[in-house]
Amino acid sequence: MLVEYMIVSFLLFAIGAVGVMIRRNFLIMLMSLELMLNGAGMILIVMSYYLGNVSGQVMFIFVAAVAASETAVGLAIAIMMYKRKGSIDINDFSVLKK
């Protein structure tokens, strides 16, 4: 049981990470970031169930709350990007030199 749940969590995390790396649309990247956080948060819940210890679920509530406020700021940044360039493709934003 535990192993399967862990595999699912890591898989979710990995899908999110790959999504952030290969997608160039800011909104999709936001979703991928959310997937990463939830994949990692799922480990907390799985472990909480496995250990019979409720504090992991409380921790996940903190993680979820933080993730929500983080996404709010991300959406604000998406709006700023759209207002500047009329696009949320991150390749359109490359004025800062390497």
């Binding site: 995390f13 990247m29 956080l37 990692a40 948060g41 480990i43 907390l44 496995y50 992991g56 991150i90």
Partner: peptide, 19 residues
Amino acid sequence: ILGSFASSFLVLGIGLIYG
């Protein structure tokens, strides 16, 4: 993007430590 990416890893590590 980079900051949220890094903090997801932080949660993953905390999840493992907790487990």
